[in-house]
Design a protein around this nucleic acid. Structure first.
Length: 101
DNA sequence: GGTATGACAGAGT
DNA sequence: CACTCTGCCATAC
């Protein structure tokens, strides 16, 4: 299985995350059948073409935090997208117990 | 083909 | 809890 397929596999899993729920990099990797590829999930999202309709904002880290530097443009963008879907933040983090897919 | 980097995770302290 | 340390693995140099 080459990397192009892994990428497709990962994107499909992300695309399946329902609105109003979130998943983590590790979860996405596992659901894609690729344990230990959490970092790769991030790499794939980074190279995503702008305007892609992949719900990348529903992917956060295992501590319920947005993976971008706090206060950065990307951070705000992701946060508002999540809130727009009804996800409430506890400070700077999302309570996974409640929203984890 | 080393070496460093990163939208990470889990165990340990 | 929060913080550090280590393992991971595709990519970019």
């Amino acid at each position: 299985m080459d990397t192009a397929e892994l990428k497709t596999q990962i994107l499909q899993v992300i695309g399946a995350i329902p609105a109003g729920r979130v998943s983590t990099y590790g979860d996405v990797a596992r659901r894609a059948g690729l344990p230990n590829h959490a970092r790769y999930v991030g790499t794939v999202l980074k190279n995503l073409p702008t305007g892609s309709r992949i719900p990348w904002h529903r992917v956060i880290n295992g501590r319920g935090e947005i993976a971008f530097p706090l206060g950065s443009d990307k951070w705000h963008q992701q946060q508002s997208r999540l809130q727009r879907e009804g996800i409430c933040f506890q400070g700077e983090r999302v309570p996974l117990r409640r929203y984890r897919w």
